[in-house]
């Protein structure tokens, strides 16, 4: 299966800009389906970006983050060709991991 994580990490001298888009329903647990039943909460709780063996950026998410979440941040120190590891875990124990090369 294709990864649920799409990442673009671009280096611009000293600063690396990272954009990530993840496929996930991010169900709040408060919405009903057409049959009138509550759709159980299903959302990403933690998303980590690891470079050079340390977490450079960690996102803790609740149910108010939009479906198919998007996040953008930047960090210093990395260079072109370095690897960035991205991983998430959700409230049902689901998870996914990918690595991206900094371009």
């Amino acid at each position: 299966m294709a990864s649920s994580i799409r990442v673009r990490a671009t280096s611009n001298g000293d600063i690396t800009e990272v954009q990530a888009l993840i496929q996930h329903p991010m169900d709040t647990g408060l919405v009903k389906n057409p049959a009138g039943e509550l759709i159980p909460a299903h959302y990403i709780q933690q998303l980590k970006f690891e470079w050079n063996g340390k977490d450079v950026f960690v996102a803790d998410w609740g149910t108010a983050v939009s479906k198919d979440p998007y996040v953008k941040f930047s960090f210093k120190g990395a260079k072109k060709g370095d690897e960035l590891k991205i991983s998430w875990t959700d409230n049902k124990g689901g998870s996914d991991t990918t690595t991206a090369k900094i371009a």
Binding site: D55, A59, G62, T63, A64, V65, S66, Y70, F73, F75
Partner: peptide, 19 residues
């Protein structure tokens, strides 16, 4: 809605999409 943790060297800025 969301809480982000920053390491040393991570630029203090973040963009995301919320409900």
């Amino acid at each position: 809605a969301a809480s982000y943790k920053f390491a040393d060297g991570t630029v203090p800025a973040v963009a995301n999409r919320l409900k």
